[in-house]
Design a protein around this nucleic acid. Sequence first.
DNA 1: GTGCTTTCCATTGACGCCCATAAATTCCCA
DNA 2: TGGGAATTTATGGGCGTCAATGGAAAGCAC
Lengths: 160, 160
Amino acid sequence: MDQFVSTFTNKIDTKGRVSVPASFRTVLAKDGLDGIYCYPSLDAPALDAGGKRLVDKINALVEDLAPYSDERDHLATALFGTSEILSIDQDGRTILPERLREHAGITTHIAFVGLGEKFQMWEPERFKTHLSEARQKVRDLRKLLGAGRRGSGGPEGARE
Amino acid sequence: MDQFVSTFTNKIDTKGRVSVPASFRTVLAKDGLDGIYCYPSLDAPALDAGGKRLVDKINALVEDLAPYSDERDHLATALFGTSEILSIDQDGRTILPERLREHAGITTHIAFVGLGEKFQMWEPERFKTHLSEARQKVRDLRKLLGAGRRGSGGPEGARE
DNA sequence: GTGCTTTCCATTGACGCCCATAAATTCCCA
DNA sequence: TGGGAATTTATGGGCGTCAATGGAAAGCAC
């Protein structure tokens, strides 16, 4: 598997270390980056993270813009300037800088949430809320879709 | 990693010395320049800096313009005329000339901000403001990108 | 010599590396 | 198929190394 899937909640120890889920480590290793590329999400109290693939995407995004243009500098500042390359020790643990923890409101535990090509880190309680909201939105969306597509739009649409 | 990433805020001591972040030094060393190429940002109270790669890019930029044209002369003057090669001592520290510090309003602390192929130096408080503006602009920019995306073949990394 | 810059050494705190333990999972074999 | 051994994973703690910073010593100019 070369994608980040599932959710894992791990504990931060007294030295600020936290285990990166083993399956995520496997994906990262295949991706060819010795560490985690990580930055604060632009519009959520969470951290976006990934490997080389994510870095390449961001590079492509920035390099599409004209050199010395405002957009380019701002994008580079917002992305590279706020990013960190988190190292992973040989026991599979990493340390989140204060700046990142603060953005996500993380204190004692971290929820690692797989999103396919990247993953996010959340304060577990906040993620719980975020997840139920997301699920509700999906249900609403499907009702709309179902209403137009199927004959009924009936009880079936409420299924999980 | 061969890019300037993350932000580090370091202190200027009584002799005007300041430590260049270790990870930035690593990138510079790989870049094959024994020092920092540095000049005042054209449109921000900050300093642009980098290694050989940055110098090459600037050269290419200038050489793209017609020889003896006004634009070329102006660009060359604005960039080369105001540049300095800052040396790095064996403890990884450098000294900023008064002229450069003044342009950026730097006094006691410097924020080193990675932007990928180059980095900037800011007065920390000013950078804080600049960063929140940059993040807002990127949010706006992404809405535009996101609206027109799909099938563009472009990176879809603009998504959060 | 005095004043200024550059090189070298010292301190401190953070981070990486090593080992230990315990729980959970996988694997193996009867 | 069930039980037990071996492996993997998450977590805790000790210790050495390195980075950031401060200060002393050694060149250099005038």
